[in-house]
């Protein structure tokens, strides 16, 4: 009896700690983004201002647009690369599959700064440095690796016998892909696209190196505000950065709750 009460109490404390841990960054960023004068040791701002959020019509708005366009393109590109790659690796067995999976994992695991420095020369040579297309291609390096690994796990688990049925009914490979496989894996494609979007959306070093300061995505804008000590603007931008990831997480939790699947 005493033990279970102690357990219940420690669980309550832990739950409170988790609430504080999950909520604090949002509160701190939210208050900072609207704080006028807020000098030490004031626990609460002395005045408020909306000037950081007014930047939605200026630098933060254009950066959000740049990030959205670049992340959407990266998502599409990484799915186009990841689907066939994951499928081809899934057809392997034994050491070959391990080696191919390790190769696909390399761009995900290599430090982005190292990938960027290694690749920058080629982006400069072909004239893609400092362009949106170049930044998309650079982001697609880690995003394609991740999408390949994701589709590898998909193709290792899904049952594709319906493809054989479609083929036996006379459908060609493209028709099978467009009318059978892709529609059947709609949810998985959406998840892979979401992953690719998020890899690009939060990317800093590759954008710095390949974008060369001219492609101002939202993370780059927030990063430079932080360096300049513009905490209010940085906090507003940081909160904007959290919106798409939270939407994706919400959708995933919703889908999980509906299908009662435990994500592995």
């Amino acid at each position: 009896m005493g033990v279970s009460r102690a357990n219940a109490a420690s669980r309550a404390v832990l739950l409170a700690a988790l609430t504080v841990s999950a909520g604090t960054p949002f509160v701190v960023l939210g208050v900072t983004s609207a704080a006028g004068s807020w000098f030490f040791p004031a626990v609460w701002p002395a005045s408020w201002t909306g000037d950081a959020w007014a930047l939605l019509a200026g630098s933060l708005g254009s950066a959000t647009w740049a990030s959205t366009a670049i992340a959407t393109s990266t998502a599409a590109l990484s799915c186009l690369v990841g689907w066939p790659t994951g499928r081809a690796i899934a057809a392997l067995s034994g050491w070959r599959r391990h080696l191919a999976a390790a190769l696909a994992f390399l761009p995900v695991a290599a430090p982005a700064i190292a990938v960027g420095i290694g690749a920058q020369y080629f982006f400069l040579r072909v004239g893609l440095a400092g362009t949106w297309a170049g930044v998309v291609l650079a982001h697609a390096i880690p995003a394609s690796g991740l999408a390949s690994l994701y589709f590898l796990s998909v193709f290792l688990t899904v049952d594709l016998r319906m493809e054989d049925e479609a083929r036996s009914l006379g459908a060609g490979p493209w028709l099978v892909l467009a009318r059978v496989t892709v529609p059947a894996l709609r949810r998985q494609v959406a998840e892979a696209a979401a992953l690719g979007f998020l890899v690009s959306w939060s990317q800093v070093p590759l954008t710095l190196l390949v974008g060369g300061g001219t492609v101002r995505t939202l993370p780059i804008q927030v990063f430079s505000y932080l360096h300049a000590g513009e905490e209010r603007y940085a906090a507003a931008g940081a909160l904007l950065l959290v919106v798409p990831p939270m939407l994706v997480l919400g959708a995933a939790v919703f889908a999980t709750g509906r299908t009662e699947v435990v994500t592995a």
Binding site: T85, A88, I89, L103, P107
Partner: peptide, 13 residues
């Protein structure tokens, strides 16, 4: 094909 595909994804790195 599988190994080549993995190699292509790793190629930039």
């Amino acid at each position: 094909i599988g190994l080549v595909a993995g190699g292509l994804v790793a190629a930039p790195v």
